[in-house]
Nucleic acid binder design. Sequence first.
DNA 1: TTAAGGTTGTTCTAAATTGAACCGATCCAT
DNA 2: ATGGATCGGTTCAATTTAGAACAACCTTAA
Lengths: 167, 167
Amino acid sequence: MMGEGSFEGRWLAPEVSGVWNQFLTVTHRLEQRIDRRLQDYHGITHTQYEILVRLADAERSALRMSDLAERIVTAKSAVTYQVNKLADMGLVERNKCDSDNRGTWVALTEPGRERLEQAAPCILSLVRELFLDSINCDQARELTKLLETWSANLDAHDASDRAPRSE
Amino acid sequence: MMGEGSFEGRWLAPEVSGVWNQFLTVTHRLEQRIDRRLQDYHGITHTQYEILVRLADAERSALRMSDLAERIVTAKSAVTYQVNKLADMGLVERNKCDSDNRGTWVALTEPGRERLEQAAPCILSLVRELFLDSINCDQARELTKLLETWSANLDAHDASDRAPRSE
DNA sequence: TTAAGGTTGTTCTAAATTGAACCGATCCAT
DNA sequence: ATGGATCGGTTCAATTTAGAACAACCTTAA
């Protein structure tokens, strides 16, 4: 009734399914920790922080809404919501786009940059402490390779998604 | 103004910060994909699926609310909410706890087990396709080690959290 | 020019998640 | 025992998110 590959109630070799479970658990816990740290000490959520980071990394410290949505991997409506909040806080600025009247540029303001520069060291030290410091060079290389593979898998899966019954 | 270790607008060596960014992106995309697949084909969310999995893996296919909350890494109130929904769907059953009158046992029902056995192969094949198949044995070992380290880091950080100014 | 089709971003609604407040029940010192 | 702390779970309000519907705009091809 459980199909082949069953190991007394599991559907994956235990050591393998363990990796996946722990992966889920660890990622949840990491995000939770960062979120709490940001809210407690810097008054912004992780999503908002990610927006500030992406903006700071961008060309003229500005991005289009859709770009932003793609980079932080959320729905467009969520970006609208959060950008509005950030704009209310004065950390971000909305400007019309000249070349395309539909578009909006979101730009980091000076207070926004300051807030980011305040928060970043705090968060990065947390990321180091929890995540990066435990990785040696070989492992970093290996992990990078894995992440690229997973990313490519997702891209491939994206493509095949348009034709649902391609298997 | 940006502290030491600044690389033209970044606050971490580029290759290192890249790992973290991609880690965030990949985990989001993975979860998104699994969530969509579950909702489209099996009418449950990822959270609900995780609850069913944990129950199926548990002793007598039952767990206490708090246990459940800890295992799926969410707030207790979210568990109450989701268990109620699952109970309404008939996939799960709530029972009073004999030894502790405050407690509630959540148990997988027969329909619950059936639903899980329907969904699991679908999800596991997706997990394999996107995540596991790209990993060879060495990498799996390495990844397992990393996950355990991260987990331990989080535990340690938990402990030091009670004394906020322990640094 | 214009109509068709795709893109950009917002709005609206429903769902999910969190954290705080809360209530019984339990535990443990005295 | 009994009073105070703690635990297990629910309830409630506030925040966040996704998705669908929508309006405005752009592009292209006839």
